[in-house]
Amino acid sequence: MLDHTLAAPALSKRTVVLGARGFVGSHVVRRLQESGGEVRAIGSDSIDLLAADAADKLATIVRPEDTLVFVSAIAPCRDAAQMTKNMTMVAAVIEALGKSPVAHLVNVSSDAVYADDANPVSETSCASPSSPHGAMHLAREVLLKTGVKGCPIAVVRPSLIYGAADPHNGYGPNRFRRQAEKGETIKVFGEGEEQRDHVFIDDVSLLIELVITHRSKGVLDIATGKSTSFRQVAEMCVEIAGKGDVQGTPRQNPITHRHFDPTARLKAFPDFICTPLAEGLRRAATAP
């Protein structure tokens, strides 16, 4: 659940985005700049959070009035080595904020922290990750919560994000869209029955902006509340592209679904309206 610490929303004096070169980070930077906010975008090229001097470097940059958006991660986190690196990164952030506190911290986590069968997922669902990626994010959440003192902390947990600039080509909307645009056959697992909640990158960046402007604290899932089967997503991509087709494959794994209860978001940001999946896919397809 999310609580707003500002009675009236206002842009942070300055927002520092850690992980500004990534898919989510770059959209957040652009969104805030379009809203007229001052943004300090930091990528791994300027501060390597794995380096020994990372905390000192970050501490010299952040100011007491800043909001810090922490989105840097080695993701997806698949093994112990990557877990260690992600812990090193969060340790640097905690050390930096100990030396140089900020007004607000926004930690971009993941819905992978939840138990696989937590349907419908809400912010109060059991956080019991089954993957190293989820365990990494949950560990970072806990470390930030206990290690960073004196400022409100918001944790956002996005579901599956899609958008034109996503560098990943994993199973889902981004790959399906690219395959359809090439006129290829989209092969779904089984008949693509699994339902997931796919959230458009523009919605993710807007919700993070709302969290910043309300100086919110607590936890917020970023999901639409409407889950769609992979087959439906694939068929939408084919329809939008006007080419390609969808084909089932022999099922290797049991069917699982994930649904979200969006009530907390409806209450926190009642004016916010999610982009419908078909529209988001269309916008992703026509993005420059």
Binding site: P120, S122, T124, P262, T263, L266, K267, P270, I273
Partner: peptide
């Protein structure tokens, strides 16, 4: 208790889905 809290917001979710958005 969890189910009660979840169900209490049924109207809010329905209003958003049908009208407010």
């Amino acid at each position: 208790i969890h189910n009660s809290r979840y169900r209490k917001d049924w109207v809010l979710r329905t209003l958003h889905e049908t009208v407010l958005r």
